[in-house]
Design a protein around this nucleic acid. Structure first.
Lengths: 351, 351
DNA sequence: CTGTTAGCGCTTTCAA
DNA sequence: TTGAAAGCGCTAACAG
């Protein structure tokens, strides 16, 4: 059962040897031509280029990066949920900067699961990525993120940090944003403000809850603990949580929702309640303030203010820090922390 | 200025030789242990595993895939705009299926630019991707997508097709969806229906316009050509186009918008007009029907119906077809075309 | 200016 | 059960 070597060859991708043979030169000359090297007679150069084009030759980057001194040109990116438009924007920012530095990105979804994240990273390292950008998952261990586990491959965190792992990190000003939003609600006279957030095991969840509490402390108003609901990871559970709050004998007059999943769930619950009530006994209006913007925020049927921030910029900055270490001379500065600013947007949109 | 070879070694990633040395065996034995091969004494196996763990060894997949018969485990994906939530969902579907087949995805943004797309694909091929999934850009040539240019690497199209390139393709039922939506509007009695769409050079744009025209033809009602606006690629330009339609002396009574960018732009324009008018002279209501769903569609302040479809499924199906060719025995069936169904959703949501 | 040699990290083949 | 040799595709270093 022997394979015809001619067929075999035609199925395989052409190599530098195939080009050399066709152009009647040595593989070395081909290599020189392809890397734009000097010291090749014009005539030969042309012959080689022609031969390469003829057989559709493409240099094998994997073989190339095997040589000492060469690098893979790959950056590994793990995201907790690419389907979240926020992270999609972030990925775009990362990809832009990577392209500017002639690198490509390998992308994996960790699905908020540390062991999946660890697997992805192990795989990426096996593929010789030059660096990693990670949105760390909210729960599970972090041994796979230690310098020892990464074998010296630079890592940057985006959007969230991990305690005990001291690497370049880009966050948004979670505490400040939550503080600002909550302070505004308090200054508007609200004293019973609900909090809707995701699990406190998630870094941003924790930080935004802290801002919420800090604002209360600063104004000397106690947090209405019975109105604090955490653990809603998706729109559906957020809607349920909000519906429960609305059904309380003494419901909140304002709500701070700590991410866009919770904001959207809250809006849905409020709209559903309105519909149920009809025009007969209109509900008292609920003042809603959310962290994160989203596409339709300014057209919300419920009056809404949001703490907005720039996901693409977040991705860009994380990537830039990584490339500082890879290409720049910043390879051994201590880990840096960037906190991107947030800004307030209200409906109807100010302009 | 010679480099200390010991330091040099420690900086480089450990190789199979380092493990071999530490475990006092030959590299071949290490290789056998690592690939779970049989015929290794238990004691040696243990020693090797220990040594590998000690020095943080990771098998170099790139070197591995150099050997004949081995494959890179990479799939290249180009998307016209990852920041569009629709494509983010699609990417997730692709990634899921790729992971099920133990592959990773290299992702690039083509930004609706064929030459950028060609560059990405060339790069991916250089990295030895086993297959490609492409959302083809709307304009520019397509020579880079021919079988010759790809050198036999399987390609699948997602969401759009390209004339003259006969490969596995997953589309959604653009024509049928547009036909359905337009027919409903006509059957509601509308005779002056506006069309908002993106460039007709974009595959989906063309198909959805065709469905719009077909519906008119089937009902024997002429298309109101002065109300057909194409070329809006983003929310901003769609809003402008819609505002122009509203300002017409004889504005449309209904609008079919051919994608979610245009739908959102239309909603914004209608809301802005409402606000400008105030309660004094309310605008005549506009009936809006859009192609594509989006997160907030059911909370639209303007009554809205949409032609919804499943982006993640689109990605999954494209990837599944690709892996049929890579791993299955479907490697040489003729190119297949799948058209995913669409379904109508209206606000307020039916349930 | 061009070619030969050697070796990047790994594994298939063959021999011990 | 283990190891040595050879070679995957490419290129730095050295000859010529």
């Amino acid at each position: 059962m022997s394979v015809d070597p001619a067929r075999e060859r035609s199925a395989a991708r052409p190599t530098i040897h195939d080009v050399a043979e066709r152009a009647q030169v040595s593989p070395m000359t081909v290599s020189r031509v392809l890397s734009g090297g000097p010291n090749v007679r014009a005539e030969l150069r042309e012959r080689v280029e022609q031969a390469a084009a003829d057989i559709g030759y493409r240099r094998n980057e994997n073989a190339r990066s095997l040589r000492p001194g060469h690098r893979s040109g790959l950056i590994g990116v793990t995201i907790t949920n690419i389907a979240n438009p926020y992270y999609a924007e972030m990925q775009r920012g990362i990809e832009e900067v990577a392209a500017e530095h002639s690198r490509r990105i390998l992308v994996g979804n960790s699905n908020e699961d540390a062991s999946l994240e660890a697997q992805l990273i192990a795989d990426f390292l096996g593929r010789q990525v030059e660096g990693l950008i990670v949105v760390p998952s909210g729960s599970g261990g972090s041994r796979h993120l230690t310098a020892a586990a990464l074998g010296g491959v630079p890592l940057a965190f985006a959007s969230r940090a991990v305690e005990g792992i001291d690497v370049d990190t880009v966050l948004i000003d979670d505490v400040g944003g939550a503080l600002e939003a909550t302070t505004r609600l308090l200054d508007e006279g609200h004293e019973r403000i609900a909090f809707l957030g995701n699990r406190v095991s998630v870094f941003t969840g924790r930080r935004r809850l802290r801002g919420f509490r800090d604002a209360h402390a600063a104004r000397g108003i106690p947090v209405a603990e019975e109105l604090v609901r955490v653990g809603q990871q998706d729109v559906g559970s957020a809607e349920v949580a909000m519906a429960e709050l609305l059904a309380l004998p003494h419901p909140p007059t304002a709500v701070f929702s700590a991410n866009n999943r919770n904001t959207i769930g809250a809006i849905r619950a409020i709209e559903a309640a309105k519909r149920r009530q009809g025009d007969a006994s209109p509900l008292p209006p609920i003042r809603l303030f959310g962290f994160d913007s989203f596409e339709f925020a300014d057209l919300s049927p419920v009056p809404l203010s949001v703490i907005a921030h720039d996901a693409r910029e977040l991705g860009r900055r994380a990537a830039e820090m990584l490339f500082d270490r890879l290409d720049g001379d910043e390879s051994d500065v201590p880990a840096r922390l960037i906190e991107l600013p947030v800004y307030v947007q209200s409906t109807p949109s100010p302009r």
